[in-house]
Design a protein around this nucleic acid. Structure first.
Lengths: 157, 157
DNA sequence: GTAACATAGTTACAAATGAAACCATTTGCA
DNA sequence: TGCAAATGGTTTCATTTGTAACTATGTTAC
């Protein structure tokens, strides 16, 4: 068995994950991208702001696993378009305090169910056992990953 | 139960896949990116050319799930750097015939085991049952996906 | 108190990417 | 045949993204 037999891309896990994930993300994005003029990163920022009140940009970056520049740019657009309200932290003038505006909440109320529907459609391809295993497998694969998503909730801080 | 309760990004499947996949791809890429001055798309092109002799650019695009512009650009660099040899198809002058050069093969011989090692390290997080389920789950999730990776081999054509 | 360091966030520039237009060639068909 | 449509591939231009440097504020240690 050769050490460097050609790589079979279609059976190579990292590659399969990459293609699958890109396909899914694009499909979901298609549904809100033009409709709301909202990029994927912008939507992700909105999603965490919907879930946790009054985060700073840095908090958003951690929770979305995006880097701070991407967050800064997404926020610039979101504030500009009146979907996010930005105040300055009273005790630390470097920090911002972010929350969705009424308009932001309204968009969230449309897009969130839409995203959930896509997920449901995806999970519909699996039976109950497979779904359970998938959760478990993802949990394990994420372990030791540089990004810690399951960080404590804002309320725990 | 509210219809638009905030989306919990860290439990949202499309998002988890996206972060996981990006993390993995980046980790692997880090190992060859600077070392060989090779981008992820370039490596993917090389991987299919290692597996299937004499593909056209279009074939490569299909097999890598990349679009033809990305392939064209990757090939331009690979040919330029002498890693890929490009001839014109005898019967159809629009088509190219592509294969790895000796130099290309040499790089492949280094990078392929490296990529495989990363995959092995990833799979080491799972036990045998989980791996089996993962294969099965990915197969199912890929069904109906716009991209058909399991296209026939070159030799079947 | 202040000099060195750390942190929050933005800006500037280069490189990567995507969409559309564009050649050249080949195919379909009247 | 000959002309419209299709195909393989490249180029162009605008947008996105990533990296590094930067500003401003805050913290630490002397």
């Amino acid at each position: 068995m050769s050490e460097h037999a050609p790589l079979e891309l279609e059976h190579f896990l990292p590659y399969r994950l990459s293609v699958l994930s890109n396909t899914i993300s694009q499909e979901i994005a298609r549904d809100y991208q033009q409709r709301f003029d909202l990029s994927v990163t912008e939507w992700r920022v909105m999603a965490v702001l919907a879930r946790f009140e009054s985060l700073s940009a840095r908090d958003v970056a951690q929770r979305t696993a995006m880097d701070k520049v991407a967050v800064s740019r997404a926020l610039a657009r979101l504030v500009e378009s009146g979907r996010v309200i930005r105040r300055t932290h009273a005790g630390d003038k470097r920090k911002s305090i972010l929350r969705l505006s009424a308009r932001g909440w309204k968009i969230h109320a449309t897009v969130a169910p839409l995203a959930r529907a896509h997920e449901a459609q995806l999970l519909a391809k699996l039976d109950v056992a497979e779904r359970t295993w998938l959760q478990r497998i993802l949990d394990k694969l994420e372990v030791g990953s540089p990004i810690i998503l399951s960080a404590r909730r804002a309320s725990d801080a």
